[in-house]
Design a protein around this nucleic acid. Structure first.
Lengths: 128, 128, 128, 128
DNA sequence: GTGGTCTAGACCACA
DNA sequence: GTGGTCTAGACCACG
């Protein structure tokens, strides 16, 4: 269901969060869908249930999913991003860092722009 | 000389690496320049020398600077990055993640592209 | 498990790296094996954990082992070394130096060749 | 006169020692030849005179050269290597290490043997 | 003075 | 439990 790279330096639970958000963007997951249970997903991905739990909690905290006692966990309406300045600066820094690294890989501005456009299209991110 | 955020969750030594690379791109550091000594920089930034050392060693491994025994550490000519596929995929993922996060912040494609362009210009990253 | 000479002038962490590589060649360690944890090995060898850590990180950088967060460190499939010219020249020089030193010890070409062959056999280094 | 690599990880003074021994083997230096003065060589190689001094002292200690007060430093008769067991083990280890690294570079036994033979021929190291 | 190594001991995030 | 980061302080070789 989600692609997890055990070797990646980014924590598994963050990869999961990332994966859910991406699935939402690409349409694999829709508002109201039921998420697999913690145990089920842990089994499928061969990952420690604690790790799944941690990801779900974080996603709930971010308002992406919600868990209803006894019924399961569901994707909920995407709430408009609150203009959290700290978070904005953080994302901006991550972007800047990625661009620097891309340049150190030998890529020029045009190539980098092309990559960005491809990603945006791939993720179905359109105009405002 | 470099901006370090002690509170940030990203390791200090990585912030330093990032800072050196940025200074190089923006022209604050040039090929052949002598880097401040480990102890000196440690003093200026109020950081343990070992942490500076770790950053310098990693930068040396990446071919950004070189250490000459007993003489000091110097910025070296930037050799075209070797096409390390693993690293390339890594950077690509980081970029993708940053873009997804930017979108979750409520930014549209145009705004994101504008941000990217601004960063590239700011970092003096031009055509190949 | 590994033989460390505290008196040797070569750094402990390099002796460890060397030891792991040898164990791999001789079959004491195999692909997929779990390495002893940093703390465990530190205890066994009576060496500071940081030193073990340094060795492990360098081995990971060289692609010999890989660390999985929270799970441990594992020997990984030996991927064909990338043809790093600098490194190649380095090894070539080390070999040359060793041969010169062997000659200064009073050994002739035949004896040196015999030593080389013995080492290769001992390390199970066969044809390409 | 001698080839020095400022960047190499092996100390400059050791490179010098190595260079003198190699010149001796290849005939560039002969018994009785006068070595350049410390200052002269320091100037030629753009190296700190202390470093040259250190190399000369070590070479004298090893019986390769001798300095005569007021006259200069001269290459002296090559004394048959004394069977220093410690040194022998040391050289043996260096050789082993070089071979392991060569293997990790992706070289097979035949290629390594060929390299060894080439070096021996290149250094004019023949039968006992 | 420079960088390089090592120790001791602490704290953290991850699984 | 695992590995990863950081500090404080020490010692060494090199130039």
């Amino acid at each position: 269901m989600f692609h997890i790279d055990q070797r990646s330096s980014t924590p598994i639970y963050q990869q999961l969060i990332q994966g859910v958000k991406e699935a939402l963007l690409r349409g694999g997951l829709r508002f109201g869908d039921k998420m697999p249970s913690v145990r089920e997903l842990a089994g499928q991905l061969a990952i420690n249930p604690n790790t799944i739990q941690k990801a779900y909690q974080e996603l709930e905290r971010q308002g992406v999913i919600e868990s209803l006692r006894g019924r399961g966990t569901f994707v909920c309406q995407h709430i408009e991003a609150h203009a959290d300045l700290a978070r904005q600066a953080e994302v901006n820094e991550a972007l800047r860092k990625a661009l620097i690294e891309a340049h150190y890989l030998g890529l020029g501005a045009e190539q980098i722009m092309a990559m960005v456009k491809e990603h945006l299209h791939d993720l179905s991110i359109g105009g405002e």
